[in-house]
Design a protein around this nucleic acid. Structure first.
Length: 542
DNA sequence: AATATTGACAACCGCTTTCTG
DNA sequence: GCAGAAAGCGGTTGTCAATAT
């Protein structure tokens, strides 16, 4: 039922100037729709107003919306008129529910470009950005409630493939400077407000981040509390643990390892082998970063095309991921999904040292607990939302389609799922979307699968073991592989950044045989052939 | 039957970008 | 080049109907 139709036509709220200026009318009426002196009307449009607006546009064309009030007598601001016309009165608008094809298209588009509703609307003739946005938000809420991931894996894969076309762009290939605007990486100050930074640690090029006051951070920290280790601040002296040792950009910190935590279970090895075999994908990190939202929650405003957009960093997402030492400033992860992530991680990291004095974290955790409780009554569908315990054997899952998890508890199932598109199964005039109809069934199937996997879990995994961490895809995805197409030889080693470094308080470079390289600070302490068991021991002793 | 929850939609608000003089 | 206006955009909120409890 359209809101405009809900307005009684006999109750025409449009008031003449005389009426509005009449002293008999309160300046500020309790009725939302009643205007006072010179006040523009708000609220639902009546059909009379619509008619006036349509008439006006027919006569004068679109544009110059602020003149509508002047010439038509409508007591609506230009903005409101434009919106009404664009969203409801335009003759080329398609009415009715989204078709399954449209829904599918929206999901695909969102995976590619994120919350760029207007751009998505261009791809869907007759649909408005508002419609698409509403559809997406509703869908996202529904799926989150059902414990289903936002994106189906087929769309994720498709997006991944699409994005291989843009791989070189995210490597900041100097041969294409024109595609990477100077402000491609901006860091709004607000995004870092919850981070504790030691200003003395950061080199000037980091401190002078364009577009953001990176130093404006209070003494509140997530990182040390979460990790219990300062090793998050790697030897680039930059507080993002996943940072590459800078090889590509001396001006901006490069966050292109960030999203990998999500991809470790998404066949990163395969991607990497493609690269090494001369395939299209230069590296796991670079290709996966390239603007796809399929790997994330998707409920964000992050740009889809990295070379054309700024990066936007929702602070919640950033805090969460920073806290996990899996900083992915380029990867938006707000909303409930990030709550999932946080709670999952918080259950594992340090078991757990999350700073509960942080209001934000407290709120997030509370929300997570609520979420968990609400889902506990629906135990068949909660597998992707509820934090898994540390008994999950990710190594046993590394080839297991879309649903393994990181050693720190990230369930890739939060992002991917078995997904049945259910295309063409419903008449188009249904009130509920195809998604809405299928989501319950999907959740049940999904939950059942999760349960099966839970049954297969081995008893206990020791996450303090670096060899375990290294063995996991999650860790391998953090390896700093080559992202430059012609520079493989310079990247025949990797920096084991997150888990092991965090445990060791050291950055750790290893070669393909898992030997510690002498370039690693760790080498000077422990030599190049330390066994992982020894390292485990070192970690324990620390 | 009453109440709570959810879905769908419309509209507004604030910010950013683009246009224009 | 600059300032103000206009337009665009995305996030959020409010409302009502439908559905679940």
């Amino acid at each position: 039922m359209k809101m405009s139709n809900m307005s009684s036509e006999s109750e025409d709220m449009i008031m003449s100037r005389d009426c509005i200026n009449s002293p008999g009318i309160d300046e500020v009426s309790t009725e939302r729709n009643i205007v006072g002196n010179g006040t523009l009307k708000k609220g639902p449009w009546t059909s009379a107003e619509d008619a006036i607006l349509v008439d006006y546009v027919n006569k004068h064309g679109e544009g110059n919306w602020n003149a509508v009030q002047k010439h038509s007598g409508l007591y609506r601001c230009g903005k409101s008129c434009r919106l009404r016309w664009a969203n409801h009165l335009r003759p080329d608008l398609k009415k009715g529910a989204f078709t399954p094809e449209e829904e599918r298209k929206i999901i695909e588009l969102h995976a590619k470009m994120g919350n760029k509703w207007a751009r998505m609307a261009v791809e869907l003739p007759g649909r408005t950005d508002n419609e698409i946005k509403n559809f997406w938000n509703t869908r996202t809420k529904r799926r989150q409630r059902a414990g289903l991931p936002i994106y189906p894996p087929d769309i994720s894969l498709q997006t991944l493939n699409d994005n291989t076309q843009t791989q070189n762009m995210v490597t900041f290939d100097a041969s294409h400077p024109e595609i990477l605007p100077d402000n491609a990486f901006q860091f709004p100050a607000i995004e870092f407000k919850k981070l504790e930074l030691n200003h003395s640690l950061y080199p000037p090029n980091i401190l002078d981040l364009p577009g953001g006051n990176f130093l404006d951070v209070p003494d509140s920290s997530l990182i040390p509390h979460v990790l219990g280790s300062p090793s998050c601040i790697n030897n680039n002296n930059f507080p993002f643990p996943m940072l590459k040792r800078v090889r590509r950009s001396d001006t901006y910190p490069v966050f292109d390892d960030g999203p990998d935590e999500f991809f470790s279970t998404v066949d990163v090895d395969h991607l990497y082998s493609q690269n090494m075999n001369g395939g299209d994908i230069p590296s796991s990190s670079s290709c996966l970063l390239s603007g796809s939202h399929a790997y994330f929650n998707g409920n964000t405003s992050s740009s889809g095309l990295i070379w054309a957009q700024k990066m936007e960093l929702p602070s919640l997402q950033f805090s969460t991921q920073m806290g996990s030492c899996n900083a992915a400033p380029s990867s938006p992860l707000p909303s409930l999904e990030s709550v999932d992530t946080l709670i999952q991680q918080s259950n594992l990291i340090g078991q757990t040292k999350l700073d509960r004095e942080s209001g934000l974290l407290e709120a997030v955790l509370l929300q997570s607990q609520n979420l968990k409780m609400s889902k506990s009554s629906n135990n068949n569908s909660n597998a992707s939302i509820l934090p898994r315990d540390a008994t999950t054997d990710s190594s046993s899952q590394r080839d297991d389609d879309w649903d393994s998890m990181s050693p720190l508890g990230h369930s890739a199932a939060s992002v991917f799922s078995e997904y049945t598109p259910h295309l063409g199964g419903s008449p188009l005039d249904e009130h509920q979307s195809v998604e809405a109809i299928s989501v319950k069934q999907e959740a049940e199937e999904y939950g059942a699968k999760q349960s099966d996997r839970e049954d297969d879990k081995p008893s206990q995994i020791n996450y303090s073991r670096p060899d375990y961490l290294l063995d996991s895809n999650w860790c391998s995805s953090n390896w700093y592989g080559s992202s430059s197409n012609a520079d493989h030889s310079n990247y025949d080693h990797f920096v084991v950044s997150n888990p092991v470094s965090a445990l060791l308080d050291e950055d750790l470079c290893i070669d393909s045989n898992n030997h510690i390289l002498d370039s690693s600070p760790f080498y000077s302490h422990y030599g190049s052939n330390s066994k992982w068991d020894d390292i485990s021991e070192i970690c324990r002793n620390r």
